[in-house]
Nucleic acid binder design. Structure first.
Length: 494
RNA sequence: CGAGGCGUAGCGUAGCCCGGCUCAACGCGCCUGCUUUGGGAGCAGGAGAUCGCAGGUUCGAAUCCUGCCGCCUCGACCA
């Protein structure tokens, strides 16, 4: 008699998403509007993401640093496009002191403690960082600068959803400075590729990579690259972005260097970021109606052992057997937890760990001790197919094998789903029918202007990215019929 | 920020239309004890709610009125 606390995806996808987050105890809404509390289960996923990405950043030559949360208002206005992009969602600090309220109830803002210049809580750090880089860069010998920072940022969103869009979120932002345009472009693409590798190899989430259109690019960038994933409701989610900032910020903050040829030049810049939104992407890519599904490489606990007993004698015997298996599995580098809590039935524990998305579960009872084996269940399958009895001697190897299989299986399943719902379309009518009906990705030729993009709003869709086209193929624009070499993904998006 | 819906114990709800015999009921969860334990166990007892907040109408408000806050769905904006 399974208790149904999770809405079916087919009934209400948004509610399902929220139910998963609640039941798996990933996060909850905070007392502050638009903000979330990331609970230990959710934060464990972020920590795993952080560690993986951080290693990848280090491997590509980057170092970590930290810049302030507060940005003087005047900094933000130095790059015109940039201000325009963020002005509507900034939190502003105007005062620095409270005092006891005059009516004796609580505290009030002390009007005499007004800041001369207001501070903006960073929505992103380009302006702060470039005001600092100005002091660090004089010569071409000071370049490149390859810095990443792990931080929180604030964007005062009107409508928020846990992980996908919150007023405050956690992310990493890389900010690099280069001698040439080519070097900056190479860096931008390198980091896009790091994101793609992370998404596909660790999150088991297939992505399309490509360039953003003028309308969708980052405020202040020359151009933006993105990784776009398809969620199970067939909507697109922008999962990471990498920007070639050109010389826009160097010019705005007057950051120049003297090159080896003696000429003084503006520095070339990039920035790239990936946020806790990825946790939302992870949930919406793999999870099912029973709960969270975590790919093994991002599960903080990869294996859980549920012991089964009746009498105290059985308990001692089963735990002894289970502990030896636990140690053996741990020795092979897998994270494993033995759930020996009293007061919960095995069936209850099965469901509990399933909802939390633990990839592999071992069920060990008297029968297994007797028969020298264990029941092994994997989270990416259902019913009998998910379970198998494994001989004692083969457990360690089998668990390792299943984790590998599962990582692959989840990726292949997600890729098959995405490909199945990605259509090469020729007419606007077909695209409209797709996007207003079952949904999915329309892969189409597009020679769009920003005005053409506006038109897509009538079908609530947007150009997600311009796909790479190394062979220089051409086709007729789905809207205007003009010949173009730009192929794009159009879809509804988060 | 626009339209709609909702706010009663940790969670999900009933009661609201027709104010009073309901300072509030039920299921899940929680605590204690006993029996249980291979897919969310059973019985018995128990704790837990100033009915989102602030005003108002009334002899009397969870119930009627006003304002505010929050959440959800859909739009506009965005990672």
């Amino acid at each position: 008699m399974a208790k149904r606390n999770i809405t079916k995806r087919s009934e209400n996808y948004s509610q399902w998403y929220l139910d998963i987050i609640r039941e798996a105890q990933l996060a909850e809404n905070a007392p502050v509007r638009g903000c979330m509390v990331i609970r230990p289960n959710g934060f464990a996923i972020w920590e795993k993401m952080q560690r993986t990405l951080d290693d990848m950043f280090k491997a590509t030559g980057h170092v970590n640093a930290y810049f302030p949360l507060f940005i003087p208002k005047s900094y933000l206005s130095k790059e015109a496009q940039h201000v325009e992009g963020f002005a509507k969602e900034c939190a502003i600090i105007t005062h620095y002191r409270l005092k006891n309220a005059e009516d004796g109830n609580g505290v009030m803002v002390d009007p005499t403690a007004k800041l001369e210049e207001e501070l903006i809580v960073r929505p992103t750090s380009e302006t702060m960082i470039w005001s600092v880089y100005k002091n660090w860069i004089q010569s071409y010998r000071d370049l490149p600068i390859l810095i990443n920072q792990w931080a929180n940022v604030v964007r005062w969103e009107m409508r928020t959803r846990l992980f996908l869009r919150t007023a405050e979120f956690l992310w990493q932002e890389g900010h690099t400075a280069h001698r040439t345009y080519e070097e900056a472009e190479e860096e931008t693409l390198r980091m896009l590729n790091v994101y793609r590798t992370f998404a596909e190899d660790y999150m088991a989430m297939p992505v399309f990579t490509g360039r953003k259109t003028e309308g969708e690019k980052f405020a202040g960038a020359e151009h933006t690259y993105t990784i776009e994933a398809m969620m199970q409701d067939r909507k697109a989610l922008q999962a990471g972005t990498s920007h070639n900032l050109g010389q826009n910020f160097a010019k705005a903050f007057d950051v120049k260097f003297q090159d080896s040829d003696g000429d003084v030049k503006y520095v070339w810049a990039t920035s790239w970021g990936l946020s806790t939104r990825m946790i939302g992407a992870l949930i919406m890519t793999h999870s099912d109606d029973r709960g969270l599904v975590l790919p093994p490489k991002l599960a903080s606990q990869q294996v859980v052992i549920v012991p089964i007993w009746r009498s105290d004698d059985e308990k001692a015997m089963v735990l002894n057997y289970a502990e030896r298996i636990e140690h053996e599995i741990r020795e092979s580098g897998i994270t494993v937890h033995l759930d020996d809590r009293d007061g919960y039935t095995p069936g209850w524990k099965f469901n509990e760990w399933e909802v939390r998305g633990i990839p592999v579960r071992l069920e060990i009872g008297p029968r297994d001790v007797q028969g020298k084996n264990a029941m092994v269940a994997r989270r990416d399958m259902e019913g009998k197919a998910a379970k198998q009895i494994v001989p004692r001697d083969a457990i360690q190897a089998q668990v390792n094998q299943i984790l590998k299989d599962m990582q692959n299986n989840l990726f292949e399943k997600a890729r098959a789903f995405r490909d199945q719902h990605t259509y090469d379309l020729k007419t606007y009518g077909d695209m409209k029918e797709l996007l207003e009906g079952e949904g999915g990705f329309a892969r189409v030729w597009w020679n769009g202007t920003p005005e053409d993009e506006e038109k897509l709003k009538e079908i609530k869709a947007s150009v997600r990215c311009i796909l790479p086209n190394p062979a220089g193929e051409k086709g007729a624009c789905i809207l205007t019929g003009k010949e173009t070499d730009q192929r794009v993904i159009i879809s509804k998006a988060y």
